[in-house]
Nucleic acid binder design. Structure first.
Lengths: 192, 192
DNA sequence: CTATATTTTCAGTAATTACTGAAATTTCAA
DNA sequence: TTGAAATTTCAGTAATTACTGAAAATATAG
């Protein structure tokens, strides 16, 4: 199994990035390889193509599996397991984002929630707690929003993103629409 | 300088998270300390409060400075530099997101752009390149969107996020509004 | 069942990243 | 200027994270 320069570049890059994305190099390369491969690969093929030890590949695949980033299948007259990447290109980014939320956001949110419950003893603590509350509210809002967005269909998400900067225009429109429907007077937007 | 349990918890937690957020433990703790502190602190005070070496604090502050996450000031009759965190709570998240984009997205995007220029030699390469294009288009769209959103005023952003799941409803509204501006009477909105 | 192919686990080691202390540099009052 | 206070740099070391190879466990054909 020798990779073309095109595939090799992609795989190596994904490996380097992997460590920045919170998955390690091995996992990144394995995913990249499966992502561009036209046919499912077994663990030995992966180990050979990437020059990793068999055990490393095993661990990497296990991690990808736990994130549902592999599809597993068997070929006729072959006991070995064959792996491929899901067709959906969003999959990897959804998973990376989701894992990050779990590791990087949720613990902070719950720490801050705990801090909100403390009765501050000193003036310093009162100030500290007020600052933490600012941060808490911000993160909570962002998290709720993220949850909502994450549930959107890829197609809707695409549409939403495709609107790009017009998102502010939409906000304005929202207010205009309130006028039309006889609702409250809209606040002026501070949008630049 | 001894920290209250409340502040201590926050600072230690931010330190642990720091390494997950792409800033290191030292930098995380220093920022957290400045964030909750009511008054500016000098480097020695920071080193003492966090039990880090003076040099480590120096490097950490330099990094925070490079990200504009500190305000620097001087006190009367004191040569030392005093540091505090910007009031804006968004600041840290904006910076973290921006740094990540630079480190984690942009290099991938340019690698993929390069791959798009190659003329595929084999059927395997044709397939690999098609997959890469899918990924490229997705990342490019997300990046453009991110750039747009990043430029929004905190107030507008807050409003946008506050809408949460209704974001889909907004998409619907967009279509309805077309009807409105086209002269037809609007339907009642189901927006919660 | 038994033998063998396949996969997984894990202790040890390698590679990476973070931190310290000593020395060098900068700043500024006198 | 000068020299003491303040800050920064950096080589060496500590701590963390990733990888390997050997051994154990699991699965399946006969």
């Amino acid at each position: 199994m020798n990779l073309s320069p095109l595939a090799q570049d992609f795989v190596l890059h994904f490996g380097e990035m992997g460590s920045r994305w919170g998955i390690n190099r091995t996992v990144g390369q394995i995913y990249a390889l499966l992502f561009v491969s036209q046919r499912p690969l077994n663990a030995d093929e992966i180990a050979e193509a990437l020059a990793f030890s068999r055990s490393n590949v095993s661990m990497g695949l296990k991690e990808l599996e736990s994130w549902r980033l592999t599809k597993l299948q068997h070929l006729p007259n072959d006991r070995r397991e064959y792996f491929s990447a899901p067709d959906d290109v969003w999959a990897i980014f959804r998973i990376l984002a989701e894992e990050r939320r779990k590791r990087e956001i949720d613990p902070t949110l719950s720490m801050l929630r705990g801090a909100m419950l403390v009765t501050p003893a000193t003036e310093d603590d009162r100030h500290a707690q007020a600052r933490m509350k600012q941060m808490h509210d911000l993160i909570e809002m962002a998290t709720l929003w993220f949850n909502d967005v994450q549930r959107l269909e890829p197609e809707t998400l695409k549409q939403l993103m495709g609107m790009g900067a017009t998102v502010t225009k939409l906000l304005e429109m929202k207010d205009k629409l309130k006028i039309v429907t006889g609702g409250k007077k809209p606040k002026t937007l501070s949008g630049q």
